[in-house]
Every structure is written in structure tokens, then in C-alpha cells.
């Protein structure tokens, strides 16, 4: 442990972070687990959700990777939960994957990534059977979203990748499934617009992770959505806990609200499926 005392520069102590019971929804460091572990420990992170589980395809290498990932999830069972990627351009294959990995396997949720073969976002009707099955399984539903400026004429969202959802797409999906918790990733990419896009859909949670830290962003989300609709991720290893925690510690929050955002809300979302899978989680 470093000799550096963070409280002397107005930061929380290591113990303060542990007391917040931080659950990181956005973990990409499973392939370099040993390398990132010191940072996870140093920053007091209690649990991680890895969003890179499952792969695609039936070639032997992919199958071999899947086997390794299952073993790895078992090894890190006390620290890492697995979330698989689904593909709305292949709803049947996605459903089969959900059976293999969630119903009959160790994974606890699904992720929409974008960048698919066709321009099909999470708002497309292809998603209905996927969401229905996820609902039955109580799976965590994470949707990567962005609003990249671009296109011709240039507009917000015009620079998105093929099939990359926007927060407006999430709002459309949420309208069809008003009782299903949906997590809108990256705060919509452009948080000022993302917050407003999902605001009317109370079953949508907004995730702060994987974008630059802007002062006031979490204050704004809490004002519009309430702390009970904000969740958090570290986006390790391309981003940092510094980047991501700063968004939450910049905000004027009570301890209870910070705890909700940094893990409490996610625990509530994931609790049903974790219970099914035999985890004993204190909310």
C-alpha cells in the first residue's frame, strides 16, 4: 500500500471507498486479471461485472476461449460476474447463447455492443424475444449507447457505428418493456442529451462509465433522474478508476446517494438472478 494519504488532498480514504461497497458494472480487464487486480484492490472495489463473456462463432478457437472463460469465472466467482454479448441481427443465435450461458451457465446478464452486420439497434423488433427471455431469467440488461457527432449533414448521433444504439433507442425499447430494468450505458455518450432522452422512462438506469469526466454531470443526472436511477462502472483497463470515480465525487451527494450510485442500485437490479445462482448478496 502506498504511503500517500488521499484524505490530505480532499479525497476519500481507502476505507471510505470500501464502506461505499463499490460494484463496477463495466469491466474489460478479465484477460489481464492479474495485472489489474492491484488497482481493483487499491481502489476498494467490491465486485466487477465483466462485459466480454461468451464470444461468437462455432470455430474451435472460440469454443476453446469459452471453456477457458467458464473456468476463469469459476476461479474468480467471489469477485467477477459475467455478462454475455448478444446480437440483435441474430436473435435466434442470441437466444441460444442466453440458454447456454445464463439459463444453464454462469453468466448473469446480456450486453448490446453495436457494430453489427446490419444497422439494427436495441429499438428494433428483433429484440423483443431477447428481452422477453432476459426478463424470464432476471438477467441484467446492459445496452452500450453513444451519441457521436458526425454524418452528413452533421448531427448528434450521426457518427455512431452501425447498430450502435442511442439513448433514444433505449427509450423506445423501454416503452415496449416498461417493467424491465434496462441500463443505458456510457450515460448516452453525450450525458446532457442522454439524461433527457431516458428521463421519461422510469425503468431505464443511466450508467456513468467510459467517457471523459465532466464536472456537474452526475449532479445533473441525479437532479433529472434521481440517484436511484444512476449506476456506475470503471471501464477498466482503457479508462481508470480515477476518471470514473471523479464523476461521482465531484457531485454534491449524501453518503446514501453515493452508495446507491456506486453499487446499491446495481445490487438491487442484479439481486434476483444472483439469488437464483446461489450468491448470498447483502443489498
Amino acid at each position: 500500500m502506498s504511503e500517500f494519504d488521499p484524505t490530505r488532498v480532499g479525497l476519500p480514504s481507502h476505507q471510505d471507498l470500501i464502506n461505499l461497497r463499490i460494484w463496477d458494472l463495466h469491466f474489460h480487464g478479465f484477460d489481464v486479471m492479474e495485472a489489474v487486480l492491484p488497482y481493483i484492490r487499491r481502489m476498494g472495489i467490491e465486485r466487477l461485472f465483466c462485459l466480454d463473456i461468451g464470444g461468437w462463432g462455432d470455430d474451435p478457437e472460440t469454443r476453446r476461449q469459452e471453456t477457458l472463460q467458464r473456468k476463469k469465472l469459476e476461479r474468480w466467482r467471489d469477485l467477477v460476474f459475467g455478462i454475455i454479448r448478444i446480437d440483435p441481427t441474430r436473435p435466434k443465435a442470441s437466444l441460444e447463447k442466453m440458454e447456454r450461458w445464463i439459463a444453464d451457465g454462469p453468466a448473469v446478464g446480456i450486453k448490446y455492443q453495436g457494430g453489427y452486420r446490419e444497422d439494427i439497434s436495441c429499438a428494433h423488433p428483433n429484440n423483443d424475444p431477447i428481452i422477453e427471455r432476459a426478463n424470464e431469467l432476471n438477467a441484467v440488461i446492459y445496452i452500450h449507447t453513444w451519441l457521436k457527432v458526425g454524418g452528413d449533414p452533421r448531427h448528434v448521433g450521426g457518427g455512431n457505428n452501425r447498430g450502435e444504439s442511442t439513448p433514444m433507442d433505449v427509450a423506445k425499447l423501454a416503452e415496449r418493456f416498461p417493467d424491465t430494468p434496462l441500463i443505458c450505458g456510457h450515460a448516452g455518450g453525450d450525458w446532457e442529451l442522454g439524461v433527457r432522452a431516458v428521463r421519461p422512462r422510469t425503468n431505464v438506469f443511466l450508467e456513468f462509465a467510459g467517457s471523459d469526466p465532466f464536472s456537474g454531470s452526475v449532479d445533473f443526472a441525479v437532479k433529472e433522474l434521481g440517484a436511484e436511477r444512476v449506476v456506475w462502472g470503471g471501464h477498466i483497463e482503457s479508462r481508470s478508476y480515477s476518471n470514473e470515480l471523479s464523476k461521482v465525487f465531484d457531485a454534491d451527494l449524501m453518503f446514501k446517494q453515493r452508495k446507491q450510485i456506486l453499487g446499491g442500485n446495481l445490487r438491487a437490479i442484479a439481486h434476483p438472478i444472483l439469488k437464483t445462482k446461489g450468491y448470498r448478496i447483502e443489498l
Binding site: 500517500f4 480532499g10 470515480l245 471523479s246
Partner: peptide, 11 residues
């Protein structure tokens, strides 16, 4: 946020 730069010394 100022905290972004400061947390780097903790991380």
C-alpha cells in the same frame, strides 16, 4: 472534476 487528476495518485 479536480478529483480526476488527484485520484491518479491514489490509483
Amino acid at each position: 472534476p479536480l478529483e480526476n487528476a488527484l485520484f491518479k495518485f491514489m490509483e
